[in-house]
Design a protein around this nucleic acid. Structure first.
Lengths: 139, 139
DNA sequence: ACATATAGTTTGACAATCAAACTATATGCT
DNA sequence: AGCATATAGTTTGATTGTCAAACTATATGT
């Protein structure tokens, strides 16, 4: 007999798998690659950050990211901003156009969230939010 | 002021981003590509399935998957099993070795789940499991 | 039985990725 | 201060992943 923690583990994995598949579908419609949309999503969620930090979050080397950010700059979705104190470093941040794309994407996420929690009461949503915040802080 | 549902939406995204980054780290250690580990994970979670179904879940075309499954077969992680009634179709399933890799990977997931829910009581884990099952069924 | 649809493979072109070499700047040590 | 070492980002060359389209084989519908 599986423990509830094991069941929860598999529920996490199922949730993650389904979210990944959903994200892939969405990304296909944009015409951009998964990496590019992922970068926009991260920059929208966390704000401007150095190349190295973004590369770690996206999961590629800085060499790869340089090429990808070149494309995003070409598409006018992000901007390279010189770091104020460290002249080696460059901050990558969303442009107005990039922010618009992020907002649009974020809205799709909200629609999904609405769908997933359609049967949840206000109180249950609040409870779930507390749970998620606790888990996210343990990562 | 953001509603709790909007906050929950961003908590989902944060959770997803962190899980993705964790998965990338794990995958790097295996020497296999993300797609390959992803395929093993899906086959372990859902059991053997046709190429087309697996391709959709992984998020690649069947052409790409053919090449990747060739590699997995070469590494003796999966097997191609003829479909019993449809002779066009081929089921892809984990071999004993592939199942062992999946179990190992699944155990790492369980360790992460344990970490994330370290501060949760038994009752809270049960409650969270109920929430996740409800969400997963709404996908 | 014939047209059409579907499952999977193969092929050729293209895009993404990495490791390593390189430039520029920062940091630490003596 | 000066020199060695570390770090941030870019560039390059080779490799791998990916797709679209053509192809084979089998199934389905009329």
């Amino acid at each position: 007999m599986k423990s509830n923690k094991e069941k929860l583990n598999h529920a996490f994995i199922e949730f993650y798998e389904k979210l990944s598949a959903w994200e892939l579908d969405i990304v296909k419609d944009t015409g951009l690659s998964l990496t590019l949309v992922h970068a926009v999503e991260i920059l929208g969620a966390f704000g401007a950050m150095p190349m190295k930090t973004l590369a770690d979050k996206v999961g590629v080397t800085t060499g790869t990211l340089t090429v990808q950010v070149d494309k995003l700059v070409g598409a006018e979705l992000v901007e390279r901003i010189p770091h104020q104190t460290d002249r080696r470093s460059i901050l990558v941040g969303l442009s107005a156009k990039g922010m618009a794309l992020f907002t649009e994407h974020d809205d799709l996420h909200l629609q999904l969230t609405t769908q997933l929690t359609a049967t949840f009461s206000e109180q249950e949503i609040t409870q779930l939010l507390v749970f998620f915040n606790r888990m996210n802080s343990e990562f």
